[in-house]
Structures are given as C-alpha cells and as structure tokens.
Design a protein around this nucleic acid. Structure first.
Lengths: 273, 273
DNA sequence: AAGAGTTCTGAATCGCTGT
DNA sequence: GACAGCGATTCAGAACTCT
C-alpha cells in the first residue's frame, strides 16, 4: 500500500497530473505544491491551517500531578504578526480556489484565535459562505483558573468559490442524520481525538501530532458535502485523517504535508488499513 | 416609570452626564450619542448591530445596471458595500471602547454573515478576544431548502479593551451553572424569543422587531460578566432587552435607539414591569 | 479475567509577585 | 517591558494499576 504512497516534491517537477497524485501524499510545501496541481480538478477542499494560538512561552504545570500540559508549541504555528498570518492564509485560499472545480466547496477549521480573520478574508476574496458549523467537544480541556468560559468548540466555515456557485454537493439526508433531532443543524457534537485513534510517536509515549483531527469530523464533512468518487484535497494533511476517511468512504484524495514525521505516521496508519 | 425614561437627543446637547442618562433610553443616532457620553464610564457593553444578512436585491440590480453602464467590476461594488458595513462597525467599536472603563468588557452578537468581519476588525483594533460563545437555538427557523445546514446558531464575541486588560468580571459559578455538565462551556442552549415575551406591534398581529433578543440571552451575559450595580451600555437597543434584564438583575443601564417605534415598545415593556 | 480505584491528558491566547 | 518562580484548583474519558 505505502509503495509509491509518498511523492517527494522537488523543483524539478513543474506540474502534477491528476493521475499521478490521486491517492497519494505529496511531501512538500503546501503553497509550492498547490501551484503545480491542475486547475479546476478537485470537488472538495479540507483546510486545517495553523490556528495562530499565540500561547505564552511558559509551561503550564498541573497542580496535582506535577506533569506539564503539552500545549501547541510547534514551529508550524509560529507567526510574527497578524499580517504574516493573514498573507499566508490568503495565498493558501487563492491557490485552493484555482484547484477547485466550479461547483466545488471548501471547508476551513479553526478557533476564535483566527477563525474570524479567515472568514473575513474569505468574504473579501469573494468566497461565498454557505454555513458556519460548530463542533462541540464533549471532553474539552477545562479552564482551571476560571477566568474565561471553557473553550469547548471549534468553528468550521463551509464555502463555495463565489456567490454564483450552484449545484454544489449537499447530502441533506446525511446532514439531518448527523444534526440535532430531525434538524440538519449546523452543530455537531462529539469528542476530541483520544485513545487508540490518537497516533503516538515512535516511543509510543507522546502524541505524534498536537492537533490530530478525529475521524468523526472528517466523516461528517465528507458524507454531507461530497459524493462517492469525488476528489478531496487536503493541503495541510498532518496525520492524514482526511485522506484516511476519504478512502474508507470511497472517495479519492490528494494530500500535501511538509513534515516527514507526520508522513511516517500517515503511512503506518494507511498500512494498518 | 416612563416619565423621563426617554431622552430626545439633539444637536443642542453637547455632552451627557452619567446621572442624566442612567436608566434611560436616548432617542438618537447611536454614533452621535456615543460621542457625547463620558469616557471610561461603563462596565459592560452589549452590541447587537445589523447583521448585514444579504446584499439587497434592489441594490444588486442597481449595481448590475451600473456595471453595464459604467463597466465597473462586480467585485468592486461588492467590496464597497462590505467596506461601508465595516466602517460603520469600526466606528461603533472605537466609540464604545472610549466609553468603557479599563476593566470593562464588550459583547457583540451576529451570525456568519458578518461575525467574521466583526471579529477580525476587533482584533485589528486591539480588542482582546476572551471567548467566542455560541448560542444554540433549540427551535431554529425552519428555512429549510435542503441546500445548506439549518442555521441554528448565533455567535457572540466577548472581549476586553486590550491584551493587558485584567480584573475584568467573570462569575465562574454562574458560567458553570449555565454551561454543559460541570463545564463552564462557551456554549449556551435555549430557544429563540417567542410567545408572550415577543413584543407585538400596535395591532397585536405582527412582531414588533424582527430580531428581538430573548431575555435569557441577556440574563446569561449579565450574570456571567457583570456585578450588581454595574453600568451596562446598549448602543443599539432595539426593543430594550438588555436594559430590561439589567434592571431586573439590579444593574444600571444606558440605552440608545433611533427608531421611535421600538422606543414605544420599550416604554410599554418597562411600564409593565 | 473482571472490576474498582488511580493517573494522565487534551488546539489554552488562564493567575500573581518580584527582579 | 521580559522572565522566573510560586501557587491556586478543572472535567471527561481513556489508560493504567491493583486486587
């Protein structure tokens, strides 16, 4: 399975043909690779960018167990300013839009740290927001000091390429099934990714990726807004949940990821089946 | 009660003293009136702006014909209308911030149509977002065409004046009580405003205000983020839910509203007790 | 093997004082 | 300003330990 699963990007490769990248993860910079993908070729984009959490540099020590909270301290979430973050997001959105078929739609996920910036930029770029969808976590990290509400949600924006987009895919029966009562509500409730689903690093002690998305999230996205055989692009694939779930639901996929550690984890995950 | 409840704003009034406006609604333009209120005088602001739900069809036609006549790009017109909305919101936010005490906080409510724009502008202006809070409507409008998820949420942003703000009010016991399980979650679930609570217009047939906020929403805002005796400003008061609930919870208030029809409804509501 | 009790952790813009 | 050090106090769910 993992034979030829990874494509090494390089400057020598000027363009990617669709056949070459389907069902693969391209190891390379998201922006560089997207420039080489064929225009108007994918049906759905799932964008899981850095959230720009702006966490303080000090550790968060637990009071009762002497352990430390492994927060997000990854290189990929470091930006110098809102400006730098904004231009990175804008470029990503523009490149993604080029690759989308006319009726394709795009999902973005983030928290209040950056979702508002992303949403406004999408509107300003001409994307047409179809919904905001709220993922309510049943097991969020509590707010110890009690100085804020416990942040127990993440926000998804689902958007079409522009206002005139029609005939995009929306499977209302699935939306109703996953919503609240009989309503296809823009609210989803399920736990964060833990337990066996959570990929561990080599010594099996620590989480491989600080923000692995649960399969349940991608399952809902894919079932409600794509059809069998559709092509799903995940330009910042991380541990590859989107491709993994896409495969299990008979969708095709293209993933891009720059970190070899995550690609290793992805490979093992795909091999396990 | 309604004796002296309404203050008529006019150009002859250069400034408002706090004593004069406490427990009153000022009939006038929100921006003009805010400029005359004393600086650093209120503890909490509740901002319920127009949501900018859609580009009106009339205007669209006008813009389209303009496009044909003047050869103006569609995108430009669209951007311009967003710009108008944005500058209105920005001016409102800046004026509100002047009126806020150093430890005061501000709430804004909207839907995906404009909440992303508002949130990004707040960050760019230096407001420090403390939480996004999601109101999940247990009885959303069934505007179900089967082409989108049913929009059954509204988003609130709770923010301090800037990053260094400390000692703002957060009553965690109330937050826990109103949250999910034992968690003071940033998710609130209750129905939209209907039945007896919903104000009707004079012939008692039609709702007075298209987006009257339920008392439950203001109750939660006020209980979690203000103390008894605090001063609450509602610059776009509509039917006056904020002031009405503030009074019942022993908070003081200042309201501003431009539409005399709403002020009439407000008066009756306050007189009823 | 099964059950009971304990430990650990999760996209976190979390407190304060003193140097 | 930054940074180090101290200290007060969250919950759901899975993993782990012990009987």
């Amino acid at each position: 399975m993992s034979n030829g699963f990874v494509i090494e990007d390089s400057e020598d490769i000027p363009k990617y043909s669709l056949e070459k990248v389907l069902g693969k993860v391209i190891h390379g910079n998201s922006l560089s690779v997207m420039k080489k993908l064929p225009k108007e070729s994918v049906d759905l984009v799932f964008l899981d960018p850095p959230y720009f959490l702006q966490l303080p540099k000090k550790d968060l020590r637990r009071w009762n167990s002497k352990t430390i909270v492994n927060g997000v301290d990854d290189e990929w979430d470091k930006f110098k300013s809102f400006e730098e973050y904004d231009s990175f997001i804008k470029e990503t959105l523009l490149l993604a839009r080029d690759i989308m078929k006319p009726a394709a739609t795009l999902w973005v996920i983030s928290t209040y740290h950056s979702i508002f910036r992303i949403g406004k930029m999408m509107q300003d770029l001409g994307f047409w927001i179809l919904n905001d969808v709220h993922w309510i976590k049943t097991n969020p990290m509590p707010n110890w000091l009690g100085v804020r509400f416990t942040n127990s949600t993440e926000t998804l924006i689902w958007a079409a390429k522009d206002k005139s987009s029609r005939k995009y895919t929306f499977n209302k029966e699935w939306a109703k099934k996953l919503g609240i009562g009989k309503v296809a509500a823009n609210v989803w409730e399920f736990p964060i990714c833990t337990g066996k689903e959570r990929l561990k690093d080599d010594d099996r002690r620590c989480k491989l990726h600080s923000t692995q998305k649960p399969a349940e999230l991608l399952k809902r996205i894919i079932l409600t807004t794509s059809n069998e055989g559709d092509i799903i692009l995940d330009p910042m694939a991380g541990t590859g949940t989107a491709g993994y779930v896409a495969r299990s639901l008979n969708r095709r996929f293209i993933m891009i990821e720059i970190n070899p550690k995550y690609i290793d984890g992805m490979k093992k995950r795909f091999d396990r089946g």
